[in-house]
Design a protein around this nucleic acid. Structure first.
Length: 569
RNA sequence: CGGGGCGUAGCGCAGUUUGGCUAGCGCGCCUGCCUUGGGAGCAGGAGGUCGGAGGUUCAAAUCCUCUCGCCCCGACCA
């Protein structure tokens, strides 16, 4: 490819709309352009990278016995009514009507449509296991699309669905996918970490998310500093603390009322009373399936709503509004406490052991001190309700949890019968008995993966593509294309590289060297071959490695061969 | 959906408060000269429904009303 012909409109300045480095670089290097919020056009460079990632995904899916298909984007509403997700997905779905007023949606995911396909085609255990996948556009009307292709409303996803006859076979599928994912992300040059996760609206009992650890990640994860435990904070368990000796030994004080005018937050309370938040008990009022419930966590802890919802076994959970709070506690927001509260109370494990706690007094401007579990208040149930955080004990070993942010690039789910049951997808087993198919689904955000690769592979000058996904592996730059010797040498090297199946761009533009170097760095060609007067005088050309900034010279005649060798490494 | 901000040339912005001549600047783009190891220089040039609609006024980028879009924070989410 000639640079003069390549449609890669690079930008010198950072577009105002882009905040994330990957978004800025994708726009600046001419990979993408925005069409409308959360919807992007891929220009040649962007599309080439997408294809490289897709190629890797395909290879690994095929290797794991996946068979590629293509499911429709437009899906009939009826199917979604059958699983109840027409409502559950709600405003998140792009919905449309045809001329006969029939309702459709643009597929946000494809469990329904594939299960509907399979239920009429798969009849026997002999046809199992079956693993089908596609690489397809998905549509989700995100509340707030942002970060370029990282969170778009139209995005590309690889989704594989597994159909198995029993739990053992499902586990094999799950493991095969898990391992395929590790290979895919490694081949993409990504440092990922699988973490245990909550299954959210997709449902199912076991799931891992594959996280690219990055400052810009939207998901918070914790991982152990000494074993392999890692989990999304929504899911992360907390090792129960041993009853702290000094706390338990402390003598119980008498409960006392303290006037705390206008003190409604933990921070204010800390400075007002001059004591630490770990001596406080926070009382949060929730509406669980429309009924009020109080949840207690220690002052310095954060309540985890996912855990609370599971603990309560409710289907809806939301913080109570201020009117409700005043009605059930008798005090404005900020003064709720467990003492004398007559509604269901659940407490995090760390709460009962707090001696002489400070709690809200259920009266305006009042808190109570010296409050003790059982003597002064009681709870209905105790459980793990709080968010894990850095410094907590690992639930699997004696290590300590560390916090990090991650970009979720993939997720594997065991779905079980969540979709085969409502959609009635069954097969006949060895004994002729009808049984429900066990399903799994396994997604990779392909477009998001491209952005994640940039997040992990860039420097102040631009992108540093791993060779495996680079839009072109090398660029050949003659310093002065008007110099015949340089031009001829450059063209010869360019042709030899092409002949050796190295994807290469020849920067034949009549630009000054600085411009070409800047563009090459920005676009991120892994390898750069510079033909200039300095080295050519000695019959040499320069090979430069984008990522390491390493440079060395080789004889002109060996250039293509040496470059190809460098790309192999 | 709540809060905040922004729409002026391909990109980045000034001008709007206090209405006034032909709407500016930098980068990019085109032509020529010149230059060629890190976004050079000189000269000339093209490019604008000032997001849209309506209104006020002798006069609107500027004031008023409505509307569309985009960005950020929050709630939500793979």
């Amino acid at each position: 490819m000639l640079m003069s012909q390549l449609y890669a409109p690079t930008l010198r300045e950072v577009p105002a709309e882009a905040e994330l480095i990957s978004h800025q670089l994708m726009l600046r290097s001419g990979m993408i352009r925005k069409s409308t919020a959360g919807v992007y056009t891929y220009l040649p460079l962007g599309l080439r990278v997408l294809h490289r990632v897709m190629d890797i995904v395909r290879e690994e899916m095929n290797r794991a016995d996946g068979q590629e298909i293509m499911l429709p984007i437009i899906q009939p509403a009826e199917l979604w009514h059958e699983t109840g997700r027409w409502e559950d997905y709600g405003a998140e779905m792009f919905k449309l009507r045809d001329r006969h007023e029939r309702l459709f949606c643009l597929g946000p995911t494809h469990e329904e449509i594939i299960t509907a396909l399979i239920r009429s085609e798969v009849r026997s255990y002999r046809q199992l296991p079956l693993r089908l996948y596609q690489i397809q556009n998905k549509y989700r009307d995100e509340i707030r699309p942002r970060f370029g292709v990282m969170r778009g409303r139209e995005f590309i996803m690889k989704d594989l669905y597994s159909f198995d006859k029993d739990e053992e076979q499902l586990q094999e599928s799950y493991t095969a996918m898990y391992e395929a994912y590790e290979r895919i992300f490694a081949r993409c040059g990504l440092d990922t970490r699988p973490v245990e996760a909550d299954s959210g609206t997709i449902g199912g009992d076991m799931t891992h998310e594959f996280m690219v650890l990055a400052e810009s990640g939207e998901a918070q994860v914790v991982y152990c500093d000494s074993c392999s435990y890692a989990a999304n904070v929504e899911k992360a368990e907390v090792r129960l603390p041993e009853v702290e000796g000094e706390d338990a030994a402390e003598t119980m004080q008498a409960m006392a009322r303290v006037d705390t005018p206008g003190v409604t937050t933990i921070e204010q309370l800390e400075s007002f009373l001059g004591s630490k938040a770990d001596r406080f008990v926070k009382t949060m009022l929730y509406m669980a399936d429309e009924k009020p419930v109080a949840a207690l966590v220690r002052g310095d802890h954060t309540l985890n709503e996912v855990k609370l919802q599971k603990h309560l076994g409710c289907t809806t959970l939301a913080l109570a509004d201020s009117t409700t709070i005043e009605k059930v506690t008798g005090a404005p927001v900020g003064f709720a406490g467990p003492v004398g509260l007559s509604l269901p109370i659940v407490a995090d494990c760390a709460v009962p052991v707090v001696r002489n706690a400070v709690v809200g007094g259920n009266e305006r401007d009042l808190h109570l001190t010296g409050v003790n579990f059982e003597r002064d208040y009681n709870v209905d149930t105790v459980g793990d309700l709080r968010q894990a955080e850095a410094g907590d004990g690992c639930p699997r070993c004696s290590g300590t949890l560390v916090e990090a942010y991650g970009i979720e690039v993939g997720q594997v789910f065991k779905l079980g019968t969540k979709y085969s049951e409502p959609l009635n997808a069954a097969y006949l087993d060895e004994s002729g008995r009808e049984r429900l198919l066990l399903m799994g689904c396994y997604g990779i955000g392909v477009s998001r993966t491209v952005a994640a690769i940039i997040e992990q592979n860039h420097d102040e000058d631009g992108i540093c593509w791993p060779v495996s996904v680079a839009p072109y592996q090398a660029v050949v730059i003659p310093i002065n294309p008007k110099d015949e010797t340089q031009r001829d040498a450059a063209e010869a090297i360019y042709r030899s590289l092409s002949a050796e199946s190295v994807s290469v761009v020849l920067d034949d533009r009549n630009e000054r060297p600085g411009v070409k170097f800047k563009d090459a760095d920005l676009i991120g060609f892994p390898l750069r071959i510079v033909i200039g007067p300095k080295t050519l005088a000695n019959g040499q050309v320069e090979i430069g490695i984008r990522k390491t900034k390493e440079k060395y010279t080789v004889p002109v005649d060996d250039a293509a061969q040496e470059a190809a060798k460098a790309i192999q490494r």
